[in-house]
Nucleic acid binder design. Structure first.
Lengths: 200, 200
DNA sequence: ACATTTTTATACTAACTGGTATTTTAAAAT
DNA sequence: ATTTTAAAATACCAGTTAGTATAAAAATGT
């Protein structure tokens, strides 16, 4: 909606590519851990000066916020797309499980899960965004299960609210395990089996 | 086995209480996170000088190692005691779940889980101890499930190896949730329900 | 040409980190 | 009493962190 482009005014033209810096930061935090990479390091890797980064992002909190925001847009977008997809309920669950447990994009885990784990060290803006993404994810899973219940595809004794929290927790666990170099597939399948309706 | 007491020789008598320092470090790491408390801070809180701590523990790795070792001895001991207990299989599972999900001793989570999450920032000795405790835990759960299978109390299609890893992962998840201020009880119950034998 | 505006690059700060060299102190052995 | 041993306290070190003051550069407006 809002454009980043500001009609090029008087001063020296800007060479700093904000999206590029955000991307460098996002990948650094994602692959190496959000507390493992300093501002100095990000600036060096992005090939930009430190004052430029501070002008654009304010402080480390602002940069972490931008990185997480950018991450969430793409990853949460994929989950929402699966939910909105026209497919049967169990396939949607499988697709979400596959996305987190097997897709190579999550080979090193999930930036959100890592930032949540390091929440104590994050700044206030980033903390708030973590909470916001958390509830958006829960909402997404709640929507999925509400769908399933409405269509009768998900009929068991588990409440939608508990199911959504469970799904969220198990996917987070799988992503955490991937970050530790484990293969979470079998464990996640087992965990999600409790959401399956009885064989009836 | 080995005694820490060394016949008091010639020099100035030692006033530093190694067990006390270890305890201060353990609780600091446990409650605030192993990367949140510096050596300076530990020394100040324990009321001892920095060189004394470095003489006793070598470096930060040594102190973290001692803290985790002390923690594991007490907590893993409890789990092993439950397993060795004379009780029926499902009760043992319940007791272990209760220990991690409800006992107030784990109100702030589990030092092992937190150190494992911060493994990248730990020194080599502590890293090795984390791995060692991890496999000891898996072994303990494997033993429990092997028991259950042998007595026929745990008869389902899940392999002992997968079940042990699952139990370990779910308990770790519950402890992680507690560290984040959540109540994991309902989620853990749901997760562990897949280990229950069919109603038959 | 020259002033103005904005961004860039360099160099710096203050606080904190893990770790240590040095001096002081307290005991035992002679 | 004096020497010896070991521990303790103080003060220090080099490196890193987030963040910034200052100056140089590159554009536009007049």
């Amino acid at each position: 909606m809002s454009s980043e482009t500001k009609k090029p005014g008087r001063g020296r033209p800007k060479t700093l590519d904000k999206a590029h810096v955000t991307d460098v930061a996002m990948h650094a935090y994602w692959e190496e851990g959000p507390t493992e990479v300093s501002m100095n390091e990000i600036c060096a890797r992005a090939g930009v000066s430190k004052p430029s980064v501070y002008r654009e992002f304010g402080n480390d909190d602002g940069l972490a916020y931008a990185a997480l925001e950018s991450y969430a847009a793409s990853v949460l977008g994929k989950i929402l797309a699966i939910i909105a997809d026209d497919d049967i309920f169990p396939n949607k669950i499988s697709k979400i499980a596959y996305l987190s447990a097997e897709e190579e994009v999550h080979e090193n885990g999930c930036l959100f899960v890592k930032m949540r784990a390091a929440k104590a060290k994050m700044g206030p803006k980033t903390k708030a965004l973590i909470d916001q993404i958390e509830s958006m994810a829960i909402d997404a899973f709640t929507g999925l299960l509400t769908q399933g219940r409405a269509t009768g595809e998900w009929n068991n004794s588990i409440s939608v609210e508990l199911g959504a929290r469970y799904l969220h927790a198990q996917i987070g666990l799988a992503l955490d395990q991937r970050a530790r170099g484990q293969d979470p597939k079998a464990l996640l399948d087992l965990a999600l089996s409790v959401l399956s309706p009885p064989k009836a």
